[in-house]
C-alpha cells in the first residue's frame, strides 16, 4: 500500500525512515543469523542473569541496594501480577511471569539505551514466539485442570442463552480464544515497539537533516532534537507499560483457564 520508500533513491534530499530501517544486515558476511536483534537477545539474557545473580548472591536480612532492586522487581511480579490476578495457585506460574517480564522489559529498553538503540521486539518474530509460549501454556493449564472436553465445552457454550444464539456466539468464542488472543498479544507489543522506534528515527534523523540545510532550517533543528529527546522519555514509559501489559494479560489468561466457571 505505502510504497513511497521503495522508489526513493538514497542520493539527495531527506529519506524518511521506513520499515526497511528495521532490516539490519548481518554483520558476519553470509551468516544470516548474526544480526543485531539476535545479538541483543543474547545480551539481554546475559544482562538479566548477571543482575539477578549478583542481586541474590549475598542475600541478607538488611538488603544492599542491589538486592533491594532485584527483590522489588521480583515482588512486583509475584504480588501484583501473580497473586492478585491468578489467585491461590499463583506460585507455579511466577517463574514464567518473571522471566517474561524481565525479558521483555530489557529487550524493550534496548530501544532507548544509547549506543544500542534498537528495541528487539520491533522484529515481529520475537513477539510471535513469546505469544506462542503464552498461548500453549494457558491452554495446557486449562486442559490439565479441567480435561479437554470440559475445557472446550466451557469455551464454546456459554450457559443460559437460547439455543439458536449458539450459531452466532460459538464461532466468536472459539476465534477469541484461539486466534485473536495470541494475535493481539504479539501485535500489540510489536506495533508499539515498531512505531516508537520509527518515531524516534523521524525526529532524530529529521533534526540531523535540518542541520545540513540553510540557516533558517538550522534554527529549527534544535526543536526537532528537543522533541526527539522528549519522545525518548515517552518511549521509556511505553516500553515499561508494554512489558507490564504483556505479563498482565498472560496472567489473566492463565487465571481464566484455571477458573472453574465464568
Amino acid at each position: 500500500m505505502l510504497s513511497y520508500a521503495a522508489e526513493v533513491g538514497k542520493d539527495e534530499g531527506f529519506n524518511p525512515p521506513d520499515a526497511g530501517d528495521f532490516n539490519l544486515p548481518p554483520f558476519i558476511e553470509g551468516n544470516e543469523f548474526a544480526t543485531k536483534p539476535i545479538l541483543l537477545v543474547f545480551l539481554s539474557v546475559i544482562l538479566i542473569s548477571i543482575f539477578f545473580i549478583l542481586a541474590s548472591r549475598k542475600a541478607a536480612l538488611v538488603p544492599s541496594k542491589l538486592q533491594f532492586a532485584g527483590e522489588s522487581v521480583y515482588s512486583f511480579v509475584r504480588n501484583d501480577l501473580g497473586r492478585e490476578v491468578i489467585g491461590h495457585e499463583f506460585m507455579r506460574f511466577v517463574p514464567y511471569l518473571f522471566t517474561l517480564f524481565t525479558f521483555i522489559l530489557v529487550n524493550n529498553l534496548f530501544g532507548i539505551i544509547p549506543l544500542i538503540q534498537f528495541p528487539t521486539m520491533s522484529r515481529i518474530s520475537f513477539p510471535y514466539v513469546l505469544a506462542a509460549f503464552t498461548f500453549f501454556i494457558f491452554h495446557y493449564v486449562g486442559i490439565r485442570k479441567q480435561g479437554f472436553l470440559k475445557y472446550m465445552k466451557e469455551i464454546m457454550f456459554l450457559p443460559g442463552i437460547p439455543k439458536p444464539a449458539y450459531i452466532l456466539i460459538t464461532p466468536l468464542e472459539l476465534a477469541t480464544y484461539f486466534l485473536v488472543r495470541p494475535m493481539t498479544l504479539s501485535l500489540r507489543l510489536f506495533a508499539n515497539m515498531f512505531a516508537g522506534h520509527l518515531l524516534l528515527l523521524v525526529f532524530i534523523l529529521g533534526g540531523e537533516h535540518l542541520l545540513q540545510g540553510v540557516i533558517g532550517l538550522k534554527l529549527i533543528s534544535p526543536f526537532a532534537f528537543a522533541i526527539g529527546i522528549a519522545l525518548t522519555f515517552f518511549e521509556f514509559m511505553v516500553q515499561c507499560l508494554q512489558a507490564y501489559i504483556f505479563t498482565l494479560l498472560t496472567a489473566l489468561y492463565i487465571a481464566g483457564a484455571l477458573a472453574d466457571e465464568h
Binding site: 500500500m1 505505502l2 510504497s3 513511497y4 522508489e7 539527495e12 531527506f14 524518511p16
Partner: peptide
C-alpha cells in the same frame, strides 16, 4: 506519482482510507 522535475516533492503513494 514519480518525483516532479525539480525533485522537490517526494512521491507519496498510499490510500486515503487510512486517513
Amino acid at each position: 506519482m514519480k518525483d516532479n522535475e525539480e525533485g522537490k516533492v517526494r512521491n507519496m503513494e498510499g490510500t486515503l482510507n487510512l486517513v
